[in-house]
Amino acid sequence: MTAIDNDVVKSDTTNAEGYHKFELGEFTFSRDEYFVYIGWPTGSHMMSIDAFLRALQRDVAWDFFYGIVNFDGVFGTMNHYGTVDIFAGRYNDSYRKAELDYSENHETPVIRETFKSILADWTNASFDPFASPHETGAAWGVKSGDNLAAVTRRRVAAARMVGVPGDEQIRTDESGMPVNRMFRDIDQSEPIIEVEPGFEGEVAAFNLFAFLSRSDVTWNPSVVSICKDSLFCPTTEEYILPIIHGNDRVEWFIQLSDQITWDVEDRDTGAVRSRVTMKAGDVCAMPADIRHQGYSPKRSMLLVWENGSLDIPELIASGKAPTYPVEF
């Protein structure tokens, strides 16, 4: 094993299937035709490689997001905004009771670069981990090319709002973002804007539904507008959220189109708490002590609304703020 750029520890040679092996602290990662093998000092774990790559893609793209990204019931990451825990069994009641859970804390750049290297090395030309199952070929098999363009897509993050001059711009055919096959019935007209001279930078509007209809990724919230710490993070969803998201704060969902069903479990133990069905116009809070996974039968538009304040995880964890949003 050799440490290369950015502290990524990667094997000098590839295995029989053509893939490199990686290390991060005491964790080891290798893949073959069907599976990823994750090892740590007290245990090991296997996951389907296609589920693993879809989860890894989200964790990297979201820069570890808010709270916990469970790849499945055993393995995942928890964001501390500057450092990240990488864990096995930490949020699994049986592993905890057997004292078999294991966790390491790493500086964010180290885990970020390691995960990006794994994603780049293990994603073949046939597979796009951001796409829905209908939109991509398979992740299986021996090493066969790569799909760097897909796995390094730039994440949209508006500074004020999409469409404001100098900020993130709308998506068009010309910018290589065609309307998705499941949103061909979405009206593509942009708002009519009459600006007085001198106010070109502040009189701004865009077609949010058209913007979302042209997203080429699934389950990837991106910021379209910001009011201080209030972030509109809409996303288009199809098939299954590839991770189980554990909250460190209250998060809100506003279903903009179609329907998603959510399995909601206790964040720490995985015990089932509820099942939420959301249809267009529905608004639902996800408490700060749950984890959830969503199912979208048709590509749908979901507005994820976050409060990005750095103070909230501590307020929730210490019990100074409740785990649910409103008292009534």
């Binding site: 096959r181 499941m182 949103f183 061909r184 019935d185 979405i186 539904f209 279903q255 903009l256 189109s257 179609d258 329907q259 909601v264 015990a271 089932v272 708490r273 509820s274 099942r275 939420v276 069905t277 959301m278 249809k279 267009a280 116009g281 529905d282 608004v283 639902c284 809070a285 996800m286 408490p287 048709k298 590509r299 785990t323 649910y324 949003p325 409103v326 009534f328």
Partner: peptide, 28 residues
């Protein structure tokens, strides 16, 4: 495919199916 959008005249509401929780925590 047909995209379902809501409107004042036509909306269909989902909901929370409780297994072990309080509906008010979701403010649905």
């Amino acid at each position: 495919y047909t995209t379902v959008l809501g409107s004042l005249d036509s909306y269909d509401k989902g909901g929370v199916e409780l297994i072990n929780d309080d509906a008010r925590h979701y403010a649905f």
